[in-house]
Amino acid sequence: MQPVDSHLFLFVGAALFSIGLAVVVVKRHAIVVLMGIELMLNAVNINLVAFSQYDPDRLQGQMLALFVMVVAAAESAVALAIVLQVYRHFRTAQLDELNELKQ
């Protein structure tokens, strides 16, 4: 079984990270911004896993990728709760329309 050239994983990870950053900066809906953050975390995970296959005894990269997934799940749960509360207050989830601090 001939494995894939590992440089290609790094290229895919770089492209995915850039697209995720573009989503975070360009999009104005709060949930789509969260999706962009998920894309960036996935790109980082690809890099970690690609380097981790040369370390089959300790698998440090894969362990870090696992913990990144756990933290991403917790982050998205809390962030979606915040978005829900913001939507209840302002009746919108577009980030550009949230422009006042007081009640």
Partner: peptide
């Protein structure tokens, strides 16, 4: 799928289940 190809089978299943 990329995780499977990078010989990380457990992480691929975890990715599908968590994400």
């Amino acid at each position: 799928g990329l995780f499977v190809l990078a010989s990380a089978d457990f992480l691929a299943i975890a990715q599908i289940m968590i994400y």
